[in-house]
Computed example of a mutant assay.
Amino acid sequence: MTFYSFARFVANAALKPLYRYKVYGLENFPKEGGVLLCSNHINNLDPPVVGITSPRPVHFMAKEELFTVPVLKSIIRACNAFPVKRGMSDREALRKGLGVLKAGEVLGLFPEGTRSKTGEIGKGLAGAGFFALRSEAHVVPCAIIGPYKAFRKLTVIYGEPIDMDSLRKEKASPEVVTELIMSEIRKLIEKHKGVSA
Rank of each mutant, 00 (worst) to 15 (best):
V50T: 06
V50G: 05
V50L: 10
I52F: 10
I52E: 04
T53Q: 11
P55A: 04
P55Y: 03
P55E: 00
P57D: 08
P57A: 03
V58M: 01
H59C: 00
H59R: 01
F60C: 07
A62S: 11
A62R: 10
K63C: 02
K63F: 01
F67I: 03
F67W: 07
T68L: 02
T68Y: 04
P70I: 00
L72M: 00
S74F: 09
I75D: 08
I76A: 05
I76H: 02
R77M: 05
A78C: 08
N80Q: 14
F82Y: 13
P83R: 08
K85L: 02
G87W: 14
M88P: 05
D90G: 03
E92R: 06
A93H: 08
K96Q: 14
K96P: 03
L98M: 07
G99E: 06
V100C: 11
L101Y: 06
G104H: 12
G108P: 12
L109E: 11
L109D: 09
E112P: 10
R115C: 11
S116I: 11
K117P: 13
I121D: 14
I121W: 07
I121V: 15
G122F: 14
K123D: 12
K123S: 12
G124D: 13
L125Y: 11
A126Y: 05
A126G: 07
G127C: 11
G127F: 13
G127L: 12
A128G: 07
A128Q: 07
G129A: 10
G129Y: 11
F131M: 06
F131T: 04
S135M: 02
A137W: 06
H138L: 03
H138I: 01
V139Q: 07
V140D: 09
V140C: 13
C142A: 15
A143E: 09
I144W: 04
I144D: 03
